[in-house]
């Protein structure tokens, strides 16, 4: 090994004196050539290994955690969005959630109108004309829905009337118009219900006539 090393060092450009010297230097490593006891090695090899089967594979953990985090953050954001007002960054999320629910349950549109009237009330206290305009616009949109009952319109209207009393002079006109539109819509809904009732009555009478004539 020593002679071989000297040859290698000479090939690498060392002088013969330097090669000899460096070759001698390698003796400092002798102390590091330690050997662990055979008993220790057997102990390692004969130790019982408890191979734990992971219930959830490791490759699945990272994506699963990421997904859970997205759901959690999404859920928390959606929950936070529910208290947002028109003009807030999270408001579109609130509207999207409501729309999704109203597709499954059309009667939820009543609750949406109530929420819009509450929003008008809250925004009117913030002294932000831009936000109030948005809240008024959102109320109008909710009012256009066909599934809103006349009772809900009446309740939300009462709320708007209270807002009209407390709102600043410059915004009074906006709320007044909104109440008028609300009244108009309420009339329309009532008329629609009455027409429907009339139609049903006529139909019932006709059915009764047919029934009586067949009995004779």
């Amino acid at each position: 090994m020593e002679n071989e090393l000297i040859k290698e060092l000479l090939k690498s450009g060392a002088s013969s004196k330097e090669a000899e010297e460096l070759s001698q230097l390698t003796k400092v490593f002798d102390g590091l050539k330690v050997e662990r006891s055979y008993l220790l090695k057997r102990k390692f090899l004969e130790g019982e290994i408890r191979e734990q089967k992971r219930f959830i594979p490791r490759w699945f953990l990272a994506p699963a955690l990421a997904f859970a985090l997205v759901i959690l953050v999404g859920g928390l954001t959606a929950a936070k969005a529910q208290s947002s007002l028109p003009g807030d960054p999270l408001y579109p999320l609130k509207r999207a959630t409501e729309e999704a629910i109203s597709i499954i349950d059309p009667s939820f549109n009543n609750q949406i109108l109530q929420r819009r009237s509450e929003e008008v009330e809250k925004v009117s206290q913030q002294e932000s004309p831009k936000k109030l305009n948005k809240a008024v616009g959102e109320y109008k949109k909710a009012l256009e829905n066909e599934n809103v009952s006349d009772k809900t319109i009446e309740e939300s209207q009462k709320k708007l009337e209270k807002v009209e009393e407390t709102v600043k002079e410059q915004d009074k006109e906006k709320i007044k118009n909104l109440i008028q539109e609300s009244e108009k819509k309420q009339e329309e809904v009532k008329k629609k219900i009455e027409d429907q009732n009339k139609d049903n009555q006529i139909k019932d009478n006709e059915d009764l006539k047919i029934k009586n004539s067949t009995e004779f």
Partner: peptide, 15 residues
């Protein structure tokens, strides 16, 4: 994970 208890060669470590 494999539940192995570590062992050491105390004499060697002392040395």
């Amino acid at each position: 994970e494999m539940g192995l208890e570590p062992s050491y060669d105390e004499d060697l470590i002392e040395k």
